[in-house]
């Protein structure tokens, strides 16, 4: 890996518990994320990984626990506030805006950077147009980076799955996030597509210093690209550490391979 330096803890989750009615999705989970690192969350299906991401950026609100982000302590995140604070994410089941083109999806990703109001935009000439062009420039950089120039005007609904995943990453990147949350970015991809995706993720981390929290099932990928790994099982944390530590953790092994009785 490159010369990027892993910094201080910027996101600290303490004793998070989340319930849906009587179902416990997360129980008393604590872990932290350091600046510029690639942090993976792994675990068997239904372990609560996606719920964890949803708590981090405020889609779900935990019943108990504390979230400390850049020294700011709160009980729960609000989705909007999280976006403003520099969180961006992708979803397990692609959540693109299907009726819009790739370009529009990426431009929407930048919505927080656009400051003109709707009246200025209705008039178009002047500030709105200037702003639109400046942001188009930025979005085109993301398009270049992800090598999706040829599909920029295509409605995303018509794209194959792998490309949609890439566009969704693009939408998150367009926001110039500080923390990128990726929910199974490589699910359902073939080897070649996975390699591409790995390259993009590492490049983002490398070039822009973006902190990355990702959920992934492919252990090879996780062990290769992440700095630290947290392991969940049935909504509880059963392991936390470097890939090697986690690999040799007996509890983790038994969760994945089953226990011998």
């Amino acid at each position: 890996m490159s010369a990027r330096k892993i910094g201080e803890v910027i996101l600290d989750l303490q004793n998070i518990s989340l319930r849906f009615g009587g179902v416990k999705a997360l129980t008393d989970i604590s872990f932290n994320v350091r600046e510029h690192e690639v942090r993976a969350i792994i675990g068997p299906n239904g372990a609560g990984k996606s719920s964890m991401l949803n708590v981090i950026n405020g889609v779900y609100h935990p019943q108990e626990g504390t979230i400390i982000f850049r020294g700011e302590k709160r009980h729960e995140m609000e989705a909007n506030a999280a976006a403003k604070a520099g969180f961006a994410r992708t979803f397990q089941n692609i959540a693109l805006f299907k009726g819009m083109s790739v370009l529009d999806n990426l431009m929407t990703g930048r919505n927080l950077k656009l400051k003109t109001n709707f009246l200025q935009q209705a008039i178009w000439w002047g500030p709105a147009r200037r702003e639109e062009l400046e942001n188009r420039q930025k979005v085109e950089e993301v398009i270049d980076f992800l090598e999706i120039e040829h599909i920029r005007k295509t409605p995303v609904g018509r794209l194959p799955y792998g490309l949609q995943k890439r566009v969704e990453l693009g939408r998150a990147l367009a926001a110039e996030p500080q923390i990128l949350l990726l929910d199974e970015p490589m699910a359902g991809m073939n080897v070649e597509e996975k390699q591409d995706m790995c390259r993009f993720i590492l490049d983002v981390n490398d070039q822009f210093g973006t902190t990355i929290v990702l959920i992934e099932h492919d252990m090879g990928v996780v062990m290769d690209i992440s700095d630290r790994v947290v392991v969940l099982d049935y909504g509880k944390k059963i392991g936390d550490g470097t890939p090697d530590e986690v690999k040799n953790n007996p509890e983790v092994i038994s969760a994945y391979l089953g226990t011998q009785h």
């Binding site: 989705a79 909007n80 976006a83």
Partner: peptide, 8 residues
């Protein structure tokens, strides 16, 4: 939901 998450 996605719209809210990206700050709309």
């Amino acid at each position: 939901v996605a719209a809210e998450v990206i700050g709309i």
